[in-house]
């Protein structure tokens, strides 16, 4: 296959889902065997503008939860993984990080639901965020363990011999050097929270309707057009983050 043809076909395959979702989100009345919906309208999108609508509330709630999770996890796992990486028991610590990461989140949630119900945390945004931390935080730690290597440790010591105190070491060297890793961690943990379905449903007991849950609900209601619209909304923040990553992470380290 020629290189040109390969690129074209692959691009079409990659872009097709976005095109299908975009068309459906604008559609109405899609009877078999028509290939395209009979009516195109912005009505579905207009719902978003209503502050009171379910969809815009879900969007706001999802953004809030995911931004808080990604920020908290990025900060905490940056430091945690430093201590783990330079610990003599590094491997054992990492085992603890891998378990929640591999365990099916929905089964973990089923096993933990009892505690959340007993403590009165189920069905609250705080409870859902805490539960999401259980899977996002170990993952963040795993992301940073590749970052904290011997070289960086030497660089940290070098700053000390040049007269830098702990605060200066972080603000002037470690954090700027970690910029790429911090962005990647933020991106990945944001996605974990943003995409999370099973655990959020079980711990949120139906009261915490994130956007991912909303897509599921529309699909179950056979509301294809709203499901497509919610799907597009789900894809927007990750695409923005991807663009930021491409722009700020990859360029600097070439």
């Amino acid at each position: 296959m020629s290189k040109y043809l390969f690129k074209i076909i692959l691009s079409i395959i990659i872009l097709l889902p976005f095109a299908v979702l975009a068309v459906l989100s604008l559609g109405r009345n899609w009877a078999f065997p028509a290939v395209l919906p009979a009516v195109f309208t912005f009505d579905n999108w207009r719902v978003l503008l209503l502050a009171q609508s379910d969809l815009s509330q879900s969007l706001a709630l999802s953004l809030f939860i995911s931004i808080v999770i990604a920020t908290a996890v990025t900060i905490a796992s940056f430091f945690t993984s430093k201590f783990i990486s330079f610990s003599p028991w590094r491997r054992r610590w990492l085992l603890i990080a891998y378990f929640p990461y591999m365990f099916a989140p929905v089964i973990l949630a089923a096993c933990l639901q009892y505690y959340f119900l007993r403590l009165g945390w189920a069905g609250s945004a705080g409870g859902v965020m805490l539960a999401q931390l259980f899977i996002a935080y170990p993952f963040g730690v795993i992301i940073f363990t590749g970052f904290w290597n011997e070289r960086l440790h030497n660089m940290e010591q070098l700053v000390a011999t040049l007269g830098g105190n702990a605060w200066q070491t972080y603000t002037r060297v470690l954090l700027p050097v970690a910029k790429g890793a911090l962005l990647i961690c933020f991106f990945q943990t944001f996605l974990i929270s943003w995409f999370e379905y099973g655990l959020t449903r079980l711990i949120g007991v139906g009261k915490i309707q994130t956007l991912t849950l909303k897509v599921f609900q529309y699909v179950n209601e056979a509301n294809v057009f709203y499901a497509a619209l919610a799907s597009i909304l789900l894809a927007v923040p990750p695409i923005v983050l991807l663009w930021l990553n491409k722009r700020y992470v990859f360029v600097n380290f070439n």
Partner: peptide, 13 residues
């Protein structure tokens, strides 16, 4: 402590 000694350590790297 290291950052008050004013002794600089130069590595191979």
């Amino acid at each position: 402590s290291a950052h008050r000694r004013n002794i600089v350590y130069i590595y191979q790297e």
